[in-house]
Design a protein around this nucleic acid. Structure first.
Lengths: 199, 199
DNA sequence: GAAAATACTGTCACAGACTGACAGATCTTG
DNA sequence: CAAGATCTGTCAGTCTGTGACAGTATTTTC
């Protein structure tokens, strides 16, 4: 409902775009909150009412992924492996979707060269891991450590797939995202295969 | 070579201790660089010649672990699983060692309640993962994605073990660190077991 | 449709994090 | 001990991030 919501969403978007533009054209050092605000047509003070730092204005939230993961109904009796498998399936779909978004490649390119931005992504991931881990535990699906581990493995797989994708993109080779994600999952299963790894 | 090195090491240590003291007694908000510097008997400017932020003055570096991991000789023909296993063994030993250090519990307690400090730890871990991943790839031990994945799994296991340890400590129950780490490794192998997880 | 409650924004003021430049003190080396 | 390298403090400055307040726009209520 309403004019207010629309305006907020528009401002939020303006800020994000202004930030990306500046990062690309002027570089990370020259991208100050003052210049972002100016370009977005708002005051510096208002910027901080939308984002708590310029880094978080540049990187996308992972709230969609998190919501999708939390929405997945899981049967109480399932083994950790089964739960991980289900959740990985959710990620696979989401990854293929997000990778096609307009801003995705722009942001990826920036992230590869700006450690400070990467930090903001990790902050998002930390939140996702914590929330998901706690949810798995509180719903009685998994005991503490396993819940934590499953959540970490989700984030881990996502990160590896993303990083490979971003690197290949920046090297010119464009690759099939779904296939890449699948490969990450396969490797994960192989590397930790009990016959060679466990005891 | 002598006096200068000693003095630097001493100052570095003083800063770290001053930071921990302040964090514990005054809380994170009241812990400013100015107060740390004052307590350590140095100028504010000098603080930044030792640490690049107050967060990194509080959290320990992971350079020891990284060095140990990099020093491990690995046979070129080994499978990813074997390599992971070898490196995990290194971690197991290091974990049992570090957990006994004097500052470890103090820092752990702080980390559980101060997200900003936790961020500094992740920065360290990111560095470890990157360096280790690159090393594994450059030495021709593993192809890119697998190298990355192995490095991530190392960090992931470490993090989970540490977090469980810290939580149990803060809840009063003191637990055997080696056993806890072992349990994390076991769970990792189990959760990703191909029979239930792979296809 | 006006008035009251609510939400958004800009201006101002400020504390804290960090950095470059320079000068003086301290250590190392031949 | 003298020359050179290294460390430190002072100063001055930019940038981030936040609280307080007043004015404006929107929604709600009657």
């Amino acid at each position: 409902m309403g004019k207010r919501e629309d305006h907020k969403a528009a401002t939020r978007r303006e800020i994000q775009l202004a930030t990306l533009d500046l990062l690309e054209t002027a570089g990370a050092d020259a991208t100050t909150v003052a210049r972002i605000a100016e370009r977005a047509g708002i005051s510096e003070r208002t910027f901080f009412r939308y984002y708590d730092s310029k880094e978080s204005a540049a990187v996308p939230g992972q709230s969609e992924l998190l919501d999708t993961l939390l929405a997945r109904e899981l049967v109480p009796g399932a083994s950790p492996a089964e739960i991980l498998r289900e959740l990985i399936d959710v990620c696979r779909a989401q990854f293929a979707y997000e990778v096609e978004q307009v801003e995705f490649k722009r942001i990826s390119r920036l992230l590869l060269h700006e450690p400070r931005l990467l930090q903001a992504v990790f902050r998002q991931e930390q939140h996702l891991v914590n929330t998901l881990g706690s949810a798995l535990e509180e719903r009685g699906l998994l005991p503490g450590m396993q819940a934590q581990l499953v959540a970490e493995l989700i984030a881990c797989t996502w990160r590896v797939a993303w990083q490979c994708f971003a690197r290949q993109e920046s090297a010119g080779r464009s690759s099939n995202p779904a296939e890449l994600f699948e490969q990450a999952v396969q490797n994960l299963a192989e590397i930790t295969a009990p016959k060679a790894f466990g005891r």
